[in-house]
Every structure is written in structure tokens, then in C-alpha cells.
Design a protein around this nucleic acid. Sequence first.
DNA 1: CTTTTCTCCTGTATGC
DNA 2: TGCATACAGGAGAAAA
Length: 292
Amino acid sequence: MPELPEVEVVRRGLHDHVVGRRIEHVEFFGARVARRHLPGPGDLADRLHGNLVHEARRRGKYLWLVLEAPDGHWQGLIIHLGMSGQLLVEAADAARETHLHATFDFADDGPQLRFVDQRTFGGMALSELQPGGIPARISHIAPDPLELAFDKGAVIARLKVRHTAVKRSLLDQGLLSGIGNIYADEALWRAGVHGAREAATLSKPALGRLIEHAREVMLEALGHGGTSFDSLYVNVNGASGYFARSLDAYGREGRPCRRCGTSIRREAFMNRSSFFCPRCQPRPRGAVIVLR
DNA sequence: CTTTTCTCCTGTATGC
DNA sequence: TGCATACAGGAGAAAA
């Protein structure tokens, strides 16, 4: 499940292996991955032909390649990995993956870029670039906590008027981006806050600490190459990250809390699993937020 | 406007 | 062994 650290690892792979190269030929297998490009995959492939890759950028869980078309027009190719998307750099004659959706060949003798996605929640789309360099199509995605543009005070102010669960707010990519289910649970565990707490009921300092924990846990995960539970998340060379062994809450149901020894619990929340320590993260009194 | 629910997808695990 | 069901969950559309 690629979240910010995992996507950043992939971005660095694109920087190392794709930036500076000219796209020669793109092929899509099926229409699903290019579904957000309304004219269809054939049109998208045509529009990518001959583009020079200037940069690989990221905001939250979104990646984009900064491209210069043959006519001098600059544009962004947005790539989202969804749940199980992978970008792999491989020799053109390497064996075809089962869920291969796209191949990019370049105008050099170097390796191919492939998009492989089992669940096909991922996708690609072209977008104009706004003055700040952010693609217009993801202008609704808020800055992530690792960006210079991230304004912690502004995020705290918006959380203070949110009448919904604080975990739901952490997952809201329009409020702050990059956090998914794993790092939300980790940040909440570190902060000692139950995810069902109404965001507005937390003090500003407590909200600030929560955001800081989210930032720190994602930075640590990045330092370990990201979190992998299986072969679904890998870097462009197909290797897994090893932060999973450092997780304190996510996936640790029934195992002792590393802080107090209490058994970690798992509960369904927002149609997802939430892992928390019932002692360090007490359920909000009065339970204003409905769990389902 | 804010908040919640539904839907997309397929491999893996589990129960009967 | 086979079949049904639950689960993993990001994000956008639609509904409330």
C-alpha cells in the first residue's frame, strides 16, 4: 500500500533511471490505467511520443514526470500507484508480468519503464502544469508534511473546525497529503490519540504533535526504503522496503504495545482496519463519533 | 459547504 | 476439492 514514503522511493528511482531520457514509444495494455485520459490510451501514447523527461516530482501519493513535448510544450504525466501499482525499470526483453499495463521505451539503448498493477486502482493522466509546477489536475491535493510549502499552522487551524474523526482527517488528502492507513495508525499511536476522537476536540498543541509524529514516522520509513508486507510494493528495481518490522501499531493485533505491553487491538473503522493500543489511546468518552 | 457512503479491482485467506 | 465470502484500501463521484 504505497503511501508517501513508498511513493518517494519510487520517485527517486524515476529520477535515477528515467529523468534525462526521451520517450520513444509507449504502449498500453487495456484501457484501465489510462481511464482518466478521456481520449483513450492510444491518444495518450501518441501524446507521449518524443517527450523529454526533465524531472520526477511528487506531492503526497501523487507522482508526475515533467515532460517537454517535441513542439516545446511542457506538461505533466501524473502517475498514481493506487493500492498495488509498481513502476519497474527492466530490460525490454524481460519476462512480461501478469498485470503489466504499460511499457515506456526510450530513444536510447537503456531499459524499459513498466507499469504493473494487480488491482488497477492506479492510473496515469496528462495535465497542464500550474505556475508553481503542480499539475492542474491535482490542485485539490494539499501539500504533504515533507514539503517546504507545508503550513502546519494552517492545517491545525483547519483541523480545529473539523467535526469528524481525527483519523478521517489525517487521511483527507485535501487537508494534508501523503498519509494512508498505515502511517495514520502509527502517528496516532505515537501521539497517544484514538483515531475516533473528534478532530476539533483536540488542543492545538496536541494536533501539532500529531502532525509532527506523522511527519517523523514517514521520514523514518523513507530511511528504511518504505513499508512492504508482500511483493506488491517495491522500488523500481523490484526490491522491498523493510520498515514493516518497525511498525508499532499497524498489523500488530494481539501483540504487546511496545510502550505499555497492553495487547494491540484491531477494529473496523471507516471500512478499514484500525490498530491501536487501548491503554495508550483511550477511546473518546461519550463516543460522539459513530464507529461502523 | 461539510461530511459520509459507494465503487472500482483481484489475489489471498478462511469457513463450510 | 470446490465454492462463497471477507479482506486489503486510495480516491473520486455521488449522496446526504
